[in-house]
Amino acid sequence: MTGRERGDGESPRRVKPEDLTAESPFTLPGFFAALSDGRLLGGRCDECEQAFVPPRPACYACGSREIAVEEQPREGTILTNTEVARPAPAFAADAPLTIAIVELDSGVRLTGRVAADYEEVEIGTPVELTVRELTDQEKEFALDHEEEWPLHVFEPA
């Protein structure tokens, strides 16, 4: 125990085996179910404040297992970006793809597609996170358990 109340849904606490159902944001089915509802859920470490998506059982920065779940803001900034000339076959129809690492206003960082040409964005461009269903072609690439998982896409703000 680290002095925090255990068992309170609002408080950071260690996940217990029985918590880890397909509805829990600490599992990918639960994380993507929330994303389908428009909510990007992240974890925040109660010890060192490190934030991350998706939520996971321990903080990668300090190792603490006291992790709170927080809904993430949609607004962020491009840290770096590139253009994928020849993506994997499943995405060939959309080539070239613009891809970026984005830091959300919460400090969370994630990689994703950008719905803009490479020349239209750069390091520092503000973007907003959107969520959409997979296209039929993307579903062909998806594993059975991934077919209903939505895709996050950034748009220039």
């Binding site: 990918l28 994380f31 998506v53 998706p54 840290l79 770096t80 970006n81 590139t82 253009e83 994928v84 020849r86 993506p87 994997a88 499943a90 995405f91 959309d94 793809l97 891809i99 970026a100 690492i101 994630l110 990689t111 994703g112 597609r113 390091i123 993307e138 998806a142 991934e146 998982w149 895709l151 996050h152």
Partner: peptide, 20 residues
């Protein structure tokens, strides 16, 4: 979960590092 499903490739992963 987040990288592969975005269509990224090995060269583009390193390109993100190179750009930065």
């Amino acid at each position: 979960a987040l990288e592969q499903r975005s269509g990224i490739t090995a060269p583009s992963q390193y390109a993100l590092l190179a750009e930065r």
